[in-house]
């Protein structure tokens, strides 16, 4: 099974009981959504705002590549 190395950066409430930044070894073919599921980040618990890979906006189905930095920001919508 091929593995790749990625960096995960979490922001705001996502850091609570998780981390700010972490390097992880993951299976090749893993999507951003798979990582969110592992971290317990879902629409019901602190919905997702911005998802970026290497400072570019991507969708949850993005397949992570070797060396990618995934950044997740929770949705903020109050007024």
């Amino acid at each position: 099974m091929q593995e790749i190395h990625i960096t995960i950066k979490l922001f705001a409430q996502y850091r609570e009981e998780r981390f700010k930044v972490e390097q992880r070894k993951i299976k090749k073919g893993t999507s951003a959504k798979d990582i969110m599921d592992v971290l317990g980040i879902s629409e019901h618990k602190l919905p997702l705002g911005v998802l970026m890979v290497n400072s570019k906006h991507e969708k949850e189905d993005y397949i992570l590549q070797e060396g990618d930095t995934l950044a997740l920001f929770p949705k903020v919508g109050g007024g």
Binding site: Q13, P47, L48, H57, K75, V76
Partner: peptide, 13 residues
């Protein structure tokens, strides 16, 4: 890019 779904954000909690 900020609102991919129509749900409310973290402000509700």
């Amino acid at each position: 890019n900020l609102y991919k779904t129509t749900s409310k954000g973290i402000e509700t909690s």
